[in-house]
Design a protein around this nucleic acid. Structure first.
Lengths: 230, 230
DNA sequence: CGGCGGCTTGATCGGTCTCAAGTACGGTGG
DNA sequence: CCACCGTACTTGAGACCGATCAAGCCGCCG
């Protein structure tokens, strides 16, 4: 059960403490009509959990900084990462009252929280908000389907298209891209981390990426990468 | 572009001709409050297309008999089957105005049609209908995620869990189950048809299933199958 | 009867997993 | 400041599973 108290406790695992609580948690729309989160803003430490599988689904989260992973643990104990979230992404939006996935921070991260009930209530009165929620659901389904396609490609193609996707989605663009550990990439693409490592090395030798300091990957040549991703 | 005329044309490819058109296409709710399709009922021949990727999304379909597959063709020309539909399933429910998948009949099939615009319109006024649509979307997402898990299992486990799933979803239960060709199963599980064939043969030798006449599979022992699906 | 589509079976090849060391880095405590 | 440790990553050798290529089989329909 994820209560607000639990969120606080998680946030507190961050060395620098959690951020302040502002006005009561309300959704409004900004001047562009986008769903806006005026309320609670919470910080999460590296590897801290936003929520877990089986928790009741209370909040929606809008990531404002850092990266997060959502995953399920399978019967055999392996971890399947279902999605990565980058700043600007909305998550926690599941369709039952119970979360079917867990979400954790990969790096230190911050997110706005809003009560799911609040926004569903608004959506039932505001057709535009409802439309946006549907569009969000559509993107979620689309991403899942793209992920299915990725999973059945070769290791080289899967890693290349993963890098391209992240380069596209992460704000800092090409610059310095990936503070995502090899094990997370492996669990997302259903490869072993050794395979991911070998594949990265080979892609780096092709000149498409650079592996500067460990845990930072720079995209050097997008077109070579696209070619590998075929 | 899928017009009603196009639907008729497709239906006509069925040797026995298409079924009659009844009252104007309207959604109502039956006495259980379920979304009910009072209107158009159309027949599709084997391999006939319900709609194609890129068609504009006009109708929702409720399958009343037969089986259908939804799929995408990848850049490299391979076909990825995303879902199988059995009688009672609702499909065509995509989240943009353009279909991102194609759907075809595997066997002769019939479906009720309803205009997407009509039902979305009703949903905006009827909270219960809206709730049902969300629940449908939730199940779609859940199925996609389960599919992702299936894809990263061994051939034996993937085929076994596929058989279990179909045995569960198809009305006729265990009895005679699968008029789905090997190639379709292969494209769903991302295996080659030879691998599917070999795997079926081996599972049959374990006694979990029987391969009577070609193209009919009977589930004989659910628990052995579950064990293989681990 | 002939031909074709769907399925089975066999032999070989190759990519990814597995097991096993070894390396680089950051943090902590002496 | 350095010695130590743990975590993340790299690299190598070999095994294994599924892909690929190639026949052949079976049932159905013309």
């Amino acid at each position: 059960m994820l209560s607000l108290a639990a969120v606080n406790a998680t946030a507190l695992t961050r060395p620098t403490g959690h951020s302040s609580y502002r006005a009561p948690c309300n959704a409004v729309t900004d001047r562009n009509g986008q769903v806006e989160f005026g309320g609670t803003h919470v910080a999460f430490a590296r590897n801290a959990q936003f929520y877990g599988e089986g928790d009741s689904s209370i909040y929606l989260y809008k990531l404002t900084s850092g990266l997060a992973r959502s995953y399920r643990i399978r019967p055999d104990g392996r971890r399947q990462i279902v999605a990565f979230y980058v700043p600007g992404d909305l998550f926690g939006f599941e369709f039952s009252d119970i979360h079917t996935l867990s979400v954790e921070a990969i790096t230190e991260a911050r997110a706005h929280l809003i009560k799911r009930a609040t926004i569903m209530n608004i959506a039932s009165r505001d057709e535009e908000i409802a439309r946006q929620l549907w569009s969000y659901a559509g993107r979620e389904i689309r991403r899942n389907q793209d992920h299915i396609l990725q999973l059945s490609e070769s290791a080289r193609a899967a890693v290349a298209s993963f890098l391209l996707e992240m380069g596209r989605r992460i704000p800092g663009a090409d610059a310095v891209v990936l503070p995502i550990p090899r094990q997370d990439i492996a669990d997302y693409l259903d490869l072993r981390l050794e395979t991911v490592s070998r594949t990265m090395t080979r892609i780096a030798k092709s000149g498409a990426i650079a592996l500067n300091d460990k845990r930072k990957i720079t995209i050097r040549n997008r077109s070579i990468l696209s070619q590998l991703a075929s």
